[in-house]
Simulated scan of single mutants.
Amino acid sequence: MSASQEALPQINSPKHVINAASTQGRFISFEGTEGVGKTTAIEQLCTHLQDNGIEYLCTREPGGSPFAERLREILLDPATNINDDTELLLLFAARCDHIQQVILPALQAGTWVICDRFTDSTIAYQGYGRAHGDEAVRAKIDALIEQFVPQLPELTLWLDLPVLEGMARANKRSAADRFEQQATEFFTWVHKGFDTLATQYPERMQRIDASGTTDEVSTRIWQAVKESFSLG
């Protein structure tokens, strides 16, 4: 089995659903620059959901469906040489398939969807990292979202960490992908993009301090989720 196939989302169905709120599908996304600890944070949130009897599905962008995972391989491959418009359109092609094949069916079935990156990453990475917040590029992204994204997350958890600290963490990994190879200036602009979005959409997008231990960050995240969805 290829790495992309292994990454395809699987619905986790606890044997005993004990929380009434779990009968309604919820959509949560995680965002952040490189090295902020999204993978661990998502795993720990899913443990909390499991413990509370909530059926959930973990997925990611780019990717999440068989077709989108193929596009992910292209987008992350350091050997890929494409211009900014091509990159943006490939991201939305992957997103369209992901939404229709995975996200919407899960939500309609009452399953919580936990997504590693979504539209906010496109605005931050392509709109700010690539285009430094250029209004014409932002308008292009906004138009694509309006036309092709029928469902936005109800809650976005922005794991915030100083850029240099996150990059130092990321550099400890194996070979960097096409985005991770960008310079510090790129990620400084990406961070500015997330900060702008958090200011623009304070009810949906919550800043989570990603410093400290994994348990401390997990506690902050679970508190935010409980408050957002009135979980006991």
Rank of each mutant, 00 (worst) to 15 (best):
S2E: 09
A3Y: 14
A3D: 13
E6W: 15
A7W: 13
A7V: 12
L8R: 01
P9L: 04
P9I: 00
Q10D: 08
N12K: 13
N12S: 13
S13K: 11
P14H: 03
P14M: 06
V17K: 08
V17G: 11
I18N: 15
A20C: 11
T23R: 15
Q24S: 07
Q24E: 05
G25E: 05
G25A: 09
F27C: 01
F27R: 02
E31W: 11
T33K: 09
G35S: 07
G35R: 03
V36F: 09
G37L: 05
A41M: 09
I42G: 02
Q44K: 13
C46Y: 09
T47C: 06
H48G: 04
H48F: 15
H48E: 07
H48S: 07
N52S: 10
N52M: 14
T59V: 06
R60I: 01
R60K: 07
R60W: 06
E61H: 01
E61A: 03
G63N: 07
G64I: 04
F67I: 04
A68F: 04
A68H: 00
R70F: 03
L71G: 01
E73V: 09
E73S: 00
T80M: 02
T80K: 02
E87C: 07
E87Q: 00
L90G: 01
F92H: 06
A93G: 02
A93P: 00
R95Y: 03
R95H: 09
C96K: 15
Q100S: 14
Q101L: 07
I103E: 00
A106F: 01
L107P: 02
G110V: 02
G110R: 02
T111K: 02
D116I: 00
D116F: 02
F118I: 06
D120R: 02
T122R: 07
I123V: 13
Y125Q: 00
Q126K: 03
G127D: 03
A131G: 08
H132C: 14
G133T: 11
D134N: 15
E135T: 11
A136Q: 15
A136L: 14
V137C: 12
R138Y: 12
D142M: 05
A143L: 08
A143N: 09
L144Y: 02
E146K: 15
P150D: 03
L152R: 09
P153S: 09
L155W: 10
T156V: 06
D160N: 12
P162C: 10
P162G: 09
A170S: 14
N171Q: 14
N171T: 12
N171V: 11
R173K: 14
S174G: 12
A175Y: 15
A176R: 00
D177A: 08
D177R: 03
R178S: 01
Q181C: 02
T184C: 13
E185K: 15
E185V: 10
E185P: 09
T188R: 15
T188M: 13
V190Q: 03
G193V: 06
T196P: 11
L197C: 06
L197H: 00
A198Q: 12
A198V: 13
Q200I: 12
Y201L: 11
M205Q: 10
R207V: 15
I208V: 12
S211M: 05
G212H: 10
T213N: 04
T213A: 04
D215N: 06
S218Q: 10
S218H: 12
R220Y: 10
R220D: 05
Q223K: 12
Q223P: 12
Q223Y: 15
V225D: 04
S228M: 04
F229I: 06
L231H: 10
L231E: 07
